[in-house]
Every structure is written in C-alpha cells, then in structure tokens.
Nucleic acid binder design. Structure first.
Lengths: 171, 171
DNA sequence: CCTCTATCGTTGAACACTCAATCTCGATGG
DNA sequence: CCATCGAGATTGAGTGTTCAACGATAGAGG
C-alpha cells in the first residue's frame, strides 16, 4: 500500500523551480564571495553577526544560533577565521566552559571590503529579477517558512535590526 | 565615494528571511535523506534524472546539466554511485571522449525506496507551510529567478515532465 | 593532412561540513 | 559535599564540493 502524499504536477513544478532557483542563486553568491573576498558565504555571515553585536563580541553558542551554524561548524569556522586574524577567541570568566568570539579590526575591515560586492551580487541575482510585488511575496513566504520550521512565532525574536546588506555598522 | 546600491531595511529583511528559510529547509531535506536513504540530496537528484531518461541512460555532460552539477562534481558523485552499484558507466562508441551513465536496477530500487520519505519531507517542510496562493507565488518567483539566472526564456526547455516527487516512473 | 581550438570527462589537492565522541564545567538535588 | 545531568565548546574521521590542471578526442580551417 502506498500512503505517500505524492506531489501533483503543479507542486512538482514548484519544487523543482524552487530547487533550481535556489541553487543557481546561491552558487553565484558563493562564487562571488569566494573570488573577491576569499571567504565562503557562511564565514561572511559569521562576520556580519559579530559586527552587529555589542563590542563586536558574542558567545560561541549565541553566534552559532544567530549565524545558523551547528556548534561544530562554528568551531571549525572560527578556528579558520582566527588563523586569518579576523576573529579572536577569549575565555569567558563568568562561565568557564564558555568562550567569546570577537571581530578584530582586520576582520571588520575585511567585512567592509567584502560588503559592496556581496550586496551588489544579492541585488543583481535576486531583487533585480523580481517585481516589488514578487519581492514582497517572497518575504511573506520566507517568513512563513521560517515560522513553520522553527516552531516559533515568526522570527528569531532576539535583537535583529542588523545589517547584512546595509553597510556594516554604517554611519 | 560609495556607489553601492545597498539594501534598504525591507530588502534586507527579505534577504535574511529567504536565507534563513532556505537553510532550514534544505538542512531538513538533506538530513532526512542522509538518515533514511544514506545519500545526499545531490545524489538523489542524479538518480531521479537518470530514472527519467530513456533507457535510464544519459551522457555525463547531459546529466551534469540536468542535475545542476558541475562536471567535476558529477564525476566524483558517479564514481561513488558506481561503487554503491547504483549507476554504471560505459564508454560511448560514437564519441570516444564521452561516457554513458546508466541507472542500474539496484539504483532504481534504491530510488524507489528513498522517494516516499523524501517526498513526505518536501511536503511537510514546504507545502504544508504555505497557502495555495503562497505556493503559486513561490512558483512564479522561482521561475522568474531561474529565467533571470540562466538567460533563458523560463525553463531548461528540454524534456521535463519528470518525476521527482511523483513516484519515480510511477504507473 | 595538419594544426588549432573546443568539448568531454577525470583527477588530486584544498577546503568545508557532518556526525559522534569527548572534555570541561555549571546547576540541581539529595 | 557529592553525584548526576546537561550545556558549552572542541576534535578527528569521513565525506562531498570546488578549483585548476590534465589527457583524450572531435571539429573547423587552412
């Protein structure tokens, strides 16, 4: 017996288009950042989150959450970023299991240098292709999905006015 | 001077929501396939494309295109799939640079076994979260993006009635 | 027939991510 | 005070991806 709720033709078309769009889009974003800024997109996100934090400093676990990384991934990533001199790790005094990650001035400079090219790419691959109505719909859809996939109201809740796309800590 | 077309708050919100949704969604899809079918999503797609091809056979280059893989990635992937006994490679007589990839019966069986769980996951992470209107909008948006990102009318053109979501070669 | 260029496909090294195991330390409860 | 449990973070092995380089063959032009 087959209880599977298979996709109908229309759903399948939607799924495949979404899949294709998503791949092509992020492939471009990834390649641009790798070529011009020498970092994968995941690392860029980490730098962005740090740049938005008070003192550009965050606990590793918090940073993992806000940058959508597993702890393991973040550990490996921050190790790399530390080698590059873009991030520093220091022990946490009040909770000695913990560690702080801080964006260095070099890291901030690297982010600043990377931002324009990245943002231009995001605009060119995403917003330049969509009408205002489509962009609005995409926001709506994405937020629905995030809500659905996190069992949370709608958005990571916490402080999040941040800038990824806006000039990092601009002004 | 700063010529960068920075994202405004609304665009940023859209971009971040899209990013987050995309990550959460594909993380789940990936994990489900890895856990239950012992293959990454990329391999699943390769098997699907082969399953839809005449004689379940495709030239490597064609397979690379339809499965959105780089040549290199496909080579590595097919090497793995061959070890698993799911795909076979044979030389091409008419073009001796070329190679055919064929889905074996074991490969087809593996795909058949993997499909229900995968499709159920796709439904639960995507379609269950969206209203019909949202799903329609997502299709529209995705096709716009694909068109934009490929400089092609709207869709890979070629034969593409296929089944990924539908029971593979069902009925 | 010969050369030049482009395509087909593979390879190995470098790198990022996942998973499971591990270590340290805080918190809780007797 | 001690035991237990759970959280914070790291590690190493395994795997997949990218990139650049390569070898082989087809096709075009002289």
């Amino acid at each position: 017996m087959d209880h599977t709720r298979w996709l109908d033709d229309d759903e399948q078309r939607t799924w495949r288009a979404f899949l294709t769009a998503q791949r092509l889009l992020f492939e471009r974003v990834e390649r641009q950042l790798q070529n011009e800024a020498k970092m994968p997109h995941g690392y860029y996100e980490i730098l962005v989150r740090l740049s938005e934090a008070p003192d550009r400093t965050l606990r590793m676990s918090r940073l993992a959450d806000t940058s959508l990384s597993s702890r393991s991934r973040l550990s490996h990533a921050v190790a790399r970023l530390e080698e590059a001199g873009w991030v520093e790790r220091t022990a946490c005094e009040t909770d000695r299991r913990g560690a702080w990650a801080r964006l260095t001035d070099e890291g901030f400079a690297a982010l600043r240098a990377a931002a324009p090219g990245h943002v231009e790419t995001v605009r060119s691959v995403l917003f330049d292709a969509l009408s205002p109505e489509q962009a609005a719909a995409l926001q709506d859809i994405s937020e629905s999905l995030v809500g659905h996939l996190t069992n949370r109201p709608v958005w990571p809740a916490e402080s999040d006015a941040g800038a990824d796309g806006a000039c990092p800590e601009a002004g």
